[in-house]
């Protein structure tokens, strides 16, 4: 029961916290046009730029191939892993989720590999070691522990999958079910719940943040259309002071 509670609270904090953050990003005005140029001159172009940024990590690719490669390994792996985990929350399991199941395993391995690479850079590259805070290391360790325990559940200590699924579906339906007593499973789920709690209060906010980044999401058309935020518009016609 405690786990059901932890999990539910985690999900609530995650959704609520993220919604609050996103609402605040959306509400905060961007008074000036500051796209990093060359920038798209149409809205469709901005969508494309954002898609390349989010799906391909375009800027990171320009910056550093090592960070890009490990970053892609981790994030792509994570996506596959999440897709694989959807089977615990759907009944009947969606067709495409079923098709993707085996890739989830490779995803898990890629994820751990990518995280390991990123942590290696953090430890070995002088510049990155200099800028790392304890939380940067812990966050990687934390994700590594989630990925590692997940792989352990697959390859070492296979839990009672039927019971796990009953637990997950029970969470969604508000009909809490007991978890099978597998220590590794409890660790895996505890860490995953904690991750949900930490997400809205940490640098993991880069995920929603990138969509609100004015240097990436603005159309380069300042001469063609007058861009005005509310507080800047209020100054129009007023004599300047200060």
């Amino acid at each position: 029961m405690a786990f059901a509670l932890l999990f539910s609270v985690g999900a609530l904090v995650f959704v609520g916290g993220l919604a609050f953050r996103i609402a605040r990003y959306a509400r905060t005005p961007a008074p000036l046009k500051i796209p990093t140029t060359p920038a798209p001159v149409t809205l469709a172009g901005v969508w494309l730029r954002m898609a390349r940024e989010v799906l391909l990590f375009e800027s990171l690719f320009k910056a550093n191939l090592w960070i890009w490669a490990f970053g892609v390994l981790f994030h792509l792996g994570l996506v596959l892993v999440i897709v694989r985990h959807l089977r615990y929350f759907t009944e009947p399991v969606w067709g495409w989720v079923a098709v993707m199941q085996p890739f989830g395993i490779y995803g898990g391995m890629a994820m751990v590999l990518g995280l390991g690479g990123l942590w290696g850079r953090r430890l070995l590259v002088e510049r990155i070691r200099y800028i790392s805070t304890p939380s940067d290391h812990l966050m990687l360790l934390f994700l590594l522990a989630i990925g590692g325990s997940g792989l352990g559940l697959k390859f070492l200590l296979h839990p009672d999958i039927i019971a796990v699924k009953a637990f997950c579906l029970g969470l969604l339906q508000g009909n809490w079910q007991p978890l099978p007593g597998n220590g590794l499973l409890l660790l895996h789920l505890t860490l995953a719940s904690l991750l949900l709690v930490i997400f809205p209060f940490s640098k993991l906010l880069h995920a929603p943040g990138v969509f609100f980044s004015p240097t990436r999401n603005q159309i380069d058309n300042p001469r063609e259309a007058r861009h005005l935020s509310t507080w800047a518009a209020a100054l129009d016609g007023e004599p300047p002071h200060g």
């Binding site: 905060t28 960070i67 990155i128 790392s132 640098k203 980044s213």
Partner: peptide, 24 residues
């Protein structure tokens, strides 16, 4: 300023210390 500039608000939160900029 955090309330007036979305750039500042987002940029303060979003950095993950990846190091991409560190040699630029």
């Amino acid at each position: 300023l955090l309330g007036q500039y979305r750039s500042l608000r987002v940029f303060m939160d979003a950095c993950v210390h990846c190091g991409a900029c560190s040699d630029k």
